[in-house]
Design a protein around this nucleic acid. Structure first.
Lengths: 148, 148
DNA sequence: CCCCGGTAGTTCGTTCTGCGAATTTGTTAC
DNA sequence: GTAACAAATTCGCAGAACGAACTACCGGGG
């Protein structure tokens, strides 16, 4: 058959494959906390502060109508709550409930732990290099802060 | 308010955020070819060779029952076809149709282009370093080859 | 004061995703 | 040849995501 020499992997496949890897870790971690990936993301974003639906849509990259459902389900599960915006009675602020905040902390910590494990094959200096390079990639491309 | 010193980003958030970034590029690219992310992944995997449903489930990380639907929809769209396995009449080999192969090539190329753009802020040597480090992460963690 | 354009969210209908449990069909090992 | 196992599919269900249409409300003229 073919030779499978592989050689050095290109930066594109490296990025794509690591993305799938990290994603699957994220999904599995969420699952064990009774969350879907999207619910986990929502909780992580809300850990920083409450947001309006519009802002959430921008941060998570979702249409308004998609968000309504996600927040509905999370609210039904007692993880977030809609609060009236005192300035604007059309608007809504979505905030973590006490239970949601607790779960978010736990999920976040566990997910960090698992992602960290992925990089244990690298020496500490290599990890720093990787972090610096990837950090530039994400800042160069203005990724909304969905984590940390 | 808070200081926002940021400092060097950690390897964990760097991995997570780059994963979301790459993922959104992938999703958008797929969308423009009339594909969902999952359909795009299926096509990319099948570019290498036909697979049985079981193998596909392992590679894509899906339950068998999830795969049936994905292949059904892709088949309905004329992108893949089920072929009888000559060795085992229970089994099925899923292969790209001519149209599916063409679309897969185009989608794959365009996605590569877009992911490459993400790293244009890095010098060539830095890209190589990034590729090497990420490459080790993915091989250390035995990611199924979903790309390339 | 009222109306009007824009904004914040929700509702509705649809498609796709993903799972587990149960089922069908076929293989293989004994 | 039958019993155990394996490959797919079917079914029912819940979540995710979208666009279009809608409601409610904020502003700023006139």
């Amino acid at each position: 058959m073919s030779e499978h020499v592989e050689g050095p992997i290109g930066v594109v496949p490296a990025l794509v494959r690591s993305a799938f890897l990290v994603n699957s870790v994220y999904v599995n971690s969420a699952r064990e906390y009774g969350l879907t990936q999207q619910q986990g993301q929502l909780l992580c974003v809300l850990m920083a502060q409450p947001y309006g639906m519009g802002e959430l849509g921008a941060v998570l990259g979702l249409a308004k109508s998609s968000l309504t459902g996600l927040v509905d389900r999370s609210e039904r599960n007692g993880l977030v709550q809609r609060q009236d915006d005192p300035q604007d009675s059309r608007a809504v602020r979505v905030a973590l409930t006490r239970r949601g905040a607790k779960l978010a902390e736990e999920f976040y910590a566990e997910t960090c732990r698992r992602v960290e494990v992925l990089a244990t094959g690298l020496a500490p200096g290599e990890r720093d290099t990787l972090a610096a390079l990837l950090g530039r990639v994400v800042t160069d491309n203005k990724v909304p802060t969905v984590f940390l």
